[in-house]
Design a protein around this nucleic acid. Sequence first.
DNA 1: TTGAAAGCGCTAACAT
DNA 2: ATGTTAGCGCTTTCAA
Lengths: 334, 334
Amino acid sequence: MKPPVIADVARVAGVSVPTVSRVLNGTVPVSAERRERVMAAVKKLGFRPNGAARSLASQAGSMIAVFAGNTTRYGYAATIQGIEEAARQAGYMVVISVVETADGATVERAIDHALGQPLAGAVVLEFDPPGVAALAQMPSWLPAVAAASGGSSDEAISHAYMDDRHAAIQATRYLLDLGHRTVHHVAIPSMGVESARMVGWREALRDAGIEPPPVIHAGWDPLAGYDAGVRLARDDGATAVLAGNDELAIGVMKGLVDSGRSIPGDVSVIGFDDHPLSQLWVPPLTTVRQDFVGLGHQVFGLLVGRMEAGEPRPSVRMVPDLVVRQSTGRPASR
Amino acid sequence: MKPPVIADVARVAGVSVPTVSRVLNGTVPVSAERRERVMAAVKKLGFRPNGAARSLASQAGSMIAVFAGNTTRYGYAATIQGIEEAARQAGYMVVISVVETADGATVERAIDHALGQPLAGAVVLEFDPPGVAALAQMPSWLPAVAAASGGSSDEAISHAYMDDRHAAIQATRYLLDLGHRTVHHVAIPSMGVESARMVGWREALRDAGIEPPPVIHAGWDPLAGYDAGVRLARDDGATAVLAGNDELAIGVMKGLVDSGRSIPGDVSVIGFDDHPLSQLWVPPLTTVRQDFVGLGHQVFGLLVGRMEAGEPRPSVRMVPDLVVRQSTGRPASR
DNA sequence: TTGAAAGCGCTAACAT
DNA sequence: ATGTTAGCGCTTTCAA
């Protein structure tokens, strides 16, 4: 059986179609008596307005598209959760648009597809190259904002961002202050340019008059961190490591431990994100906590502003903080 | 500036509106020459069809709603990823509908909201009480399927499911065969009835003539697992634990270790899911691997069948397998 | 093969 | 406060 339409409700309630619409939307006053009748008819028929028709007639979208390179990794998933929560509360639905690579055709296909829906706006997760590419190709007529880590590639679009550069500086300095001679960096895949985490790490080292050791590039997979840990274990001078994220840090620690190094006895490790499992690790991981859910809320707020005002809002900066646990300590004196 | 509409394309190409539609949809043959003109106009104007209008006119949805109690936990996120991949390939967009509680009003709000969109179908993640409730309230006219763990509450709807009961039996037997006198169970929140994981665990124990010890109920949070681990450490007879999932297992192990027990020396622990970090734990966690992404693919396949045929398809059973790593061993002889 | 005409279900502008 | 009249942008008859 087919879902009832507004005309059915009007007939059952004995009123005109627009009256039903008015009751449903509450924009224009309707007499209490008719409102009752309409409500009763709606309930009786189990009527739900057709979103497509509504969007078409009102020229207003009811959905927010989220463009993301990934949906399952911790930072991504948590940010999307934040966006979804805020959107739901504001009455929008979230459609997920995964952009697998930064390849032009892939990005265009994803955008094309999403724009086919009645969108009110879009938020792009500018955490990786696909995100950057998607942002670059967003049509100008669609209200869009970005959630970023460490700054945005497109200053014309307002964004909420984690100040990862700042956080990396803090973390690196913390390690240096503990007495470590230098700090190694195991990097997450870069966004085309260098990640803010890497930039901050290098800056802190240079400020301290230390020439940064070569970066160890890893993928997103924790196992890549493991390999990095094994490599690091061969270098006696490596007593401190700043990993690009917690998954990598956990892999690094495991690689180090399997190679006979102890943590934090021989090597100190700091991660990024404060993954839910980080505190349960042995030893509990010192990390830079990032409030991704909050980032999601913030970026949605930006989008609402953009949709209503039409004007780009100033960007929002979020400051991650260092959570000191037991994976860091003074270097062994030799 | 506003996006161009189909009439603009028709004007530029010098053809009628329906002709443009025909070229775009490729349903009816159009002369090569006109097709060229239309394509050129589309490209020139950067035209993209309006999905709302399309859905309204064709009476066909272009989106798949995914109802889930959660989006960030491993099993959920991975299943959603699988659904999204399959849906994208088939030309559908995925809208996420988070159902926070099983409370009637919450579920109804979520469904109402989602049904406002031009949906082609829905898949509900029947992993928890909100999922069960959502499934129960789905309107019959919407093609719907379910992804479940251990069986479905609604046999009228086709579902893809992980045979968790079977897997729990395997895991429990494995522990028993190792020589453990009994196996304790730290449970994830139940779906109203008991989880299949719990049922299987109990069944295996009874089959072996062992009266199941009291279940330790934990939440979803790994920290709840920690508390369970601490409690278990006080019981000298507890030498083997089957945890409801890997996050809980990791918490349990940490609680056990912090209470002075060694793993697998004093206590063996098995988890569920094969979380990406499980293999990196110290010791690497023995667990029941679940192919959630595959589950997502399967359940989407079911939905396609349901949308096309209208007939419910037979359900799909997926068999998780036990991955033996180093968190399990023979009990210490005393 | 193509165009003209008629909706899809709803909201908005215009009357009353 | 309410009904009548027009569309929103597209697909789908129906003729030609």
